[in-house]
């Protein structure tokens, strides 16, 4: 690991001041915030991330780790730990897709450490990104090429890819946030702002090293959800190569407003398949206003993956993704509460 200096901050304003130094992409900035550290230390040990200064924001835990469900609305502080949110009774009862997405991720130890803010910013597991002995990775070294395009790419993305990057977004919780139309509170040097969660991540396009719309120094302070009673009818279905402690090879987050068998509204997000947390409005459009049966679920799944593109080893993924979504939709329809 390369040398760096360590600094602790005890206010959000001190954090954003310390982190405001400009960089190509937020995640490669010379100043990095330390929360749970589960991504950061790993990537520093691999020499993928090389921050010059670590700003430890854990002292902000007292003000930024609240888990509040009030009048049906949810506020999750960015420093709340995955395990605490996954075990929270009101979250489990009224927003099961959140609890399930968190519980099915990582291990008990990692969930005790990892913060929600860090979780959504976790970086891809692409081997060519994580192993610096590979010369070509546009995320790591902009303009260097992408070794995964013709490489070992069984786990790589089939949605939202470009000729420059097919690295999969690895997280689970982000799909739950999409399915519940969450917003993100952000603090920065210029002041506070709130954006839709779906506007946080950006597809690789020409600049795979730019992964989010966060500006230098900006810090996620909270996630918020305008709760609806029907969000109890939500779930996260995760398909993995092994039963536990593994990233998704395919996943679906579904929140379904179903009345008398008719879909009033539905929100669908897909994980393990895309370069960013992926919302499928195409699939939602197929279902909205219609009865939900297996045939309709299959049509929705077709729509969700109409633009999917496999390359080599990951050519099986669109079919797995479709089957995953069909199962998630049908399971959501049969939920009783």
């Amino acid at each position: 690991m390369r040398p760096f200096s360590y600094q602790r901050v005890d206010s959000v304003s001190a954090a954003v001041q310390a982190g405001r130094i400009d960089a190509n992409g937020h995640l490669d900035a010379p100043v990095q915030f330390l929360a749970g550290g589960t991504t950061l230390l790993d990537l520093m040990k691999l020499d993928v991330m090389r921050p010059q200064r670590i700003v430890d924001i854990n002292p902000l835990e007292t003000s930024l780790s609240d888990i509040a469900v009030e009048s049906g609305d949810v506020r999750l502080g960015a420093l709340a730990r995955m395990s605490d949110v996954a075990d929270h009774p009101a979250i489990r009862k009224d927003f099961p897709v959140i609890a399930q997405s968190l519980k099915l991720a990582a291990s008990a130890q990692l969930r005790n450490m990892a913060s929600l803010g860090g979780n959504v910013l976790q970086r891809t597991r692409c081997t060519y990104f994580r192993d610096v002995s590979w010369a070509s990775c546009n995320k790591r070294i902009p303009g260097s090429g992408c070794a995964a395009l013709e490489g070992v790419n069984r786990k790589h993305a089939v949605l939202g890819t470009s000729e420059n990057c097919i690295a999969t977004y690895p997280g689970d919780f982000a799909q739950a946030l999409l399915a519940l139309d969450a917003t993100v509170d952000i603090a920065g040097v210029q002041g506070d702002r709130t954006i839709a969660f779906r506007d946080l991540h950006v597809k690789p396009g020409e600049t795979p090293h730019v992964e989010t719309t966060l500006l230098p120094g900006e810090i996620i302070t909270a996630f918020r959800i305008a709760g609806e009673p029907w969000m109890k009818r939500s779930l996260y279905l995760k398909i993995r190569d092994r039963e536990s402690y593994e990233f998704a090879i395919a996943s679906a987050a579904v929140a379904l407003d179903l009345q008398d068998g008719i879909v009033r509204q539905v929100r669908i997000a897909i994980g393990g398949m895309a370069t960013v947390p992926w919302r499928s409005e195409e699939a939602e459009a197929v279902l909205t206003g219609k009865p939900l049966d297996e045939e309709r679920a299959r049509q929705a799944a077709q729509a969700a993956f109409a633009a999917a593109r496999g390359r080599g080893e990951n050519a099986f993924k669109p079919e797995l993704g479709r089957e995953t979504l069909v199962r998630a939709l049908l399971e959501a329809a049969t939920l009783e509460f």
Binding site: Y6, R8, L34, G36, G37, T38, L41, D42, K45, L46, I54, D56, N58, S83, S107, A108, Q109, L110, N112, M113
Partner: peptide, 27 residues
Amino acid sequence: CDHGQCGACTVHVDGRRVLSCLTFAAA
């Protein structure tokens, strides 16, 4: 593994199990 994958370094911090290999001593 020293990368948070194996659990051999598990300790309790404030009563919670965590991975000491992914925790800076300073933190």
